Amino acid sequence: MSGLSPDVIAAAYRACCLAELDALKPGNVHVFGDGHRMAVADFVTSAEVSAPHLAEPGARIGRRVRTAMEATLGAVGQNTNLGILLLCAPLALAAERGGPLRRALSHVLDTLDAADAADVFAAIRAANPGGLGRAERHDVTGPEAPASLVAAMAEAAPRDRIARAYVTGFADIFGIGLPALAEARGKGLTPPWSTTAVFLGYLAAVPDSHVARKHGAARADALRAEAAELLSLDLANHPVTELLVRDRSWKGRNLNPGTSADMTVATLFADRLLAAET
C-alpha cells in the first residue's frame, strides 16, 4: 500500500493542531483563554511553520523534530510544540511509508538510530522544556546524545508519557485517546467537544507528566483526580461555565496539563491518518 503524500500529511497535522485549540481544555491554552504566558496565536503560527518540516518527504524522525522545532522557535520565540512534534513525527513518517499505520509506526520506532538521537536531543535542548531535571544516564543536558534514542526514551519512560510512547508503540494513543474519541463521536459530540473528551480522558487516566515534572507526583495525581470528577459532565450540553471555573483554578496555580494536550493532538492526527488509509 502506498503512503500518504507530504501535502496530505502536513494538512492533517495543521488541521489537528488547530482543532485541539478549538476545544476547551482546562489548564491549557485554547480559544476560550490563553495561559502560561502563551497565546492561541503562538500555537497557530507554530502549527503553520512546523508543518512542512514535520512532513518533509524522506526525512527521518529526528530531522523532522529538530527542523520543526527550529522553525517554531524562530517564529514564536518559545517552545509551544516539542511534545506535539515528538509524538507526531513518528506518525507522519509511518503514514508516508504506507501500510497499516500501527504496523508502520512499530517499524519506524524499531529503526531509530544515532542520528535520530542527536537531532531529537538537539531539539529538546533548544526547546528547553520546564521541569526536565537531570538523569543519571542519557541526560539531555549532557555533551553528547546517546547512541540509541530508544534507550534514552526507555530511561525517561517512567516519568514522561511521551518518552513512554516510544517504547510502547504509542500504547496510550491507541489505548486511551482513540477509544475516547470514538466514544465521544458515538455520543454525537461535535468535533470540539469530542476533543475535550479526549483531553479529559487522558488527564483522568494517568497523572500528567508535565505537571509531575514541575510540581511533583502528588500534585499531578491530585489533578488527575480533579479531572476524573469532570468526566461526569455532559459534554453534549457544552458545560463551558463549569470547565472555565476549573480552567481559571488550574491556571491560577500554574498547573498546565501539557502532556495531555500533546497526546490529544497526536490522537487527532492518528485518527486522520487512519481515516486516510481507507
Rank of each mutant, 00 (worst) to 15 (best):
P129M: 10
L268R: 03
E226C: 09
T267G: 01
E70S: 09
L4N: 13
L109F: 09
S194G: 14
P129N: 12
L243V: 07
P129A: 11
R224L: 03
P26A: 13
D110Y: 04
E136H: 08
R272W: 00
A47F: 07
R102T: 01
R134H: 13
L189T: 13
G62L: 09
A115N: 06
A157V: 06
A123N: 07
H210K: 11
R185G: 05
G83E: 01
A151G: 06
M38R: 12
A145D: 04
A51F: 11
L112F: 04
I173F: 07
G201E: 01
A182D: 14
E20W: 14
P57N: 03
G33M: 01
A145P: 15
L200D: 00
P57C: 02
T190S: 15
T264E: 02
S5R: 14
L255G: 05
V40D: 00
G186F: 05
K251A: 00
R246E: 03
L101G: 08
A171G: 13
G133Q: 10
T259Y: 03
D7G: 10
L86Y: 02
A157F: 11
T264H: 12
E226V: 07
A115T: 13
L200S: 02
R161P: 04
L87M: 04
A55C: 02
V206R: 15
S148N: 05
I173S: 06
L233A: 14
L18S: 06
L85G: 02
R60L: 02
V245C: 10
D116N: 11
L243R: 11
T72M: 08
D119G: 05
E155T: 13
S106D: 03
V206K: 11
D160M: 08
Y13L: 14
D110A: 15
T80K: 03
G142N: 07
A227I: 07
R102F: 02
A123K: 10
D247S: 06
L73Q: 11
L255Y: 07
D221L: 12
V265E: 00
P26F: 13
E70F: 05
N128Y: 07
R14S: 05
L87V: 02
M69K: 12
A154E: 11
K25E: 03
E229L: 14
L231E: 04
H36Y: 08
L255M: 06
V140I: 13
A59H: 11
L230K: 10
A89E: 02
A127D: 00
N79L: 00
G77F: 12
F43R: 01
R97C: 02
M263Y: 15
R63F: 04
A147S: 15
A270T: 01
R159E: 09
A147F: 08
D221Q: 10
T259S: 12
P191R: 13
L93E: 03
A92W: 05
A59N: 10
A127L: 00
T67L: 13
T190M: 06
